[in-house]
Design a protein around this nucleic acid. Structure first.
Lengths: 348, 348
DNA sequence: CTGTTAGCGCTTTCAG
DNA sequence: CTGAAAGCGCTAACAG
């Protein structure tokens, strides 16, 4: 049945034209007679020809129509959503995406990037693993492949980045809590050695300062950025002498864990203790009001990142562009009974 | 800086050997002198050479080292976990994965598969969109590209499949509930027109029959397989004249929604109403006992699927293999106070 | 063990 | 508008 791959010369032969005519048809060139084009297309269908991009790409200087995306934890719905967003624009631009998961392993990340480079990706979107250095992108940018950093930034890397304004979001969240009358506000969850943590913590302090509240070291409780971590964090927070009455959580997973922990203590999240979680992955799919969130819309972030990358690819050689706060940050309050809805958007 | 791509001939020149020697080094052939190899490798590093797989693949009959994976909903953590599992084995086999999301769109799926084919994937793992037909895989199998179906099966497709034994899992779950003394057991959530739904429902009936319980149509409440759907389903179930006291949920998202809905009614999941959810994605990351689950271990499923695919790729032309119940199904009870832990495994 | 010689499937001048 | 010829970066015989 399939005796060797069917190639342009096969279809040229069958259609009674030459290779190059077929090639032109393939590229939708206007230089070819309508009748000829129809004939060629018919033959293509009949013979079940499939275009060989590897070969095409080898010859022409154009790009491979494949973009790479590497995330540090696909298991985290935030990144899964991000990937979906990227995939949407990538697909509709006729590209296809290499997706790899590093699991925060920097070695894996290096391998993966190398592998993608061998496959000739025409661009890379990456949420770098912890510990990534600017030098890791050197070879990529040297060969003119556009790179877009998302979620986490790497200082000194001469590439584009797309980050949400974590600092401002956190400050707003604190303002919200302070507005409700809370004076002992904890910051729960997250690994203190990440830039994101730092930013959110800074915003937390900004918010306290703006509300005229004192900063207390003891109210910062780090933990794994997971649901389990949230449980652990609230447990520890409850051991503090002068207990907090509200918390800003590092992310939504932590926030859910905090709610779990509160319920385990017979406290009602939102009523007995105010909870705000960063990110809005799980909550977005939840019909039942559970907690207040600061929303980063990961899917939208993925789309924007992909659009930015596409722009760079099409522009040939563009300057790196740093975008902060490009992503909608919404404080959505959906938690207790005594609260009203409030939303705001960051400047774009 | 980068004046045209550096190629084998460049490095051959610089190392004072010939193209083919370089090629041999690249492939780790033992036919080359140790000293020469070292020299060549040094030059490769110095010049920042990157291997061009497209070119290599064009020449040799071997495979492209890229495998495709398409899922119907990456937004669902189950599939994200699946992708992570696949990625693990794919990466360690030196392959790279094309990942695409169809969002249940059959057109998108067709496009995506076509695109992957053009890029010369050497194998495909797919959780087909609803409505996929056996014919959709015809061209792929005709060109000898191994395909592995996961999660959902397509009858008549002559390709391998890796499915969990949903029927048996559901039956076991019902047996568990019946063992606790429940007699009005609902089946909540899921779209009735999927094979998975059917299988689970069949198992549900099996379980009822085995426990000597009657089957009541009214206790089957379909909904979107999401958290929101779960809320909706439990609401509807509570309107039934003779209320259920327990439910088997289509998946864990639904189960979480059901728990939400119960709490909204001031009922305690596990104590006042028993809940079992299929799948175990979210729960696995939760420290707080929430509900009993039937565990399908999506990541393990991804790994197995990828291994199966790799086997087929390496074997050249292997027979399609259908594996059912290969994946661990565990009923893990972690919900109310009055229950004991129970586990079992399916035959592998 | 190393060099020479052909192509893989496609695009692309450059002439008809 | 179509055909002939060259070559992308690599591997695969086959000689040296």
């Amino acid at each position: 049945m399939s005796k060797g791959r069917v190639t342009v010369v096969d279809i040229a032969h069958a259609a009674g034209v030459s290779k190059s005519t077929v090639s032109l048809v393939l590229q939708g060139s206007p230089l070819v007679n309508e009748a000829t084009r129809a004939k060629v297309n018919a033959v293509i269908r009949d013979l079940g020809y499939v275009y060989n991009r590897a070969a095409a790409n080898l010859r022409q200087t154009a790009s491979s129509k494949i973009i790479g995306i590497v995330v540090n934890d696909l298991t985290n719905s935030f990144f899964a959503e991000l990937a979906v967003g990227v995939d949407m624009v990538v697909q509709s631009a006729g590209y296809v995406q290499f997706l790899s998961n590093t699991g925060e392993s920097i070695d894996r990340q290096r391998e993966v990037i190398a592998s993608m480079r061998e496959h000739g990706i025409s661009g890379l979107i990456i949420s770098p693993a912890r510990g990534t250095e600017a030098a890791d992108f050197k070879p990529l940018v040297a060969s003119g492949i556009p790179v877009v950093l998302t979620v986490r930034n790497i200082s000194g890397a001469k590439v584009s980045s797309l980050l949400s304004d974590n600092r401002m979001g956190a400050a707003q969240a604190v303002a919200h809590l302070a507005g409700l009358g809370h004076r002992r506000i904890a910051f729960l969850g997250g690994f203190p050695d990440t830039a994101v943590f730092e930013d959110r913590l800074k915003g937390f302090r900004d918010g306290l300062a703006a509300a005229g509240l004192p900063f207390a070291e003891e109210l910062i409780v780090g933990s794994a950025p997971s649901r389990a971590g949230g449980v652990e964090a609230i447990e520890r927070a409850m051991l503090i002498a002068e207990r907090p009455t509200a918390a800003l959580c590092f992310n939504d997973a932590v926030a859910f864990g905090v709610c779990d922990g509160l319920r385990a203590r017979r406290m009602e999240p939102g009523a007995d203790f105010a909870v705000i979680g960063f990110d809005d992955v799980i909550e977005a799919k939840t019909a039942v009001p559970a907690l207040t969130t600061v929303n980063v819309d990961p899917q939208g972030m993925g789309r924007r990142a992909a659009q930015l990358l596409m722009k760079q690819i099409n522009a040939g050689k563009a300057e790196p562009e740093a975008i902060v706060g490009a992503v909608r940050l919404v404080v959505r309050q959906s938690c207790g009974a005594g609260m009203k809805n409030q939303q705001w958007r960051n400047a774009v």
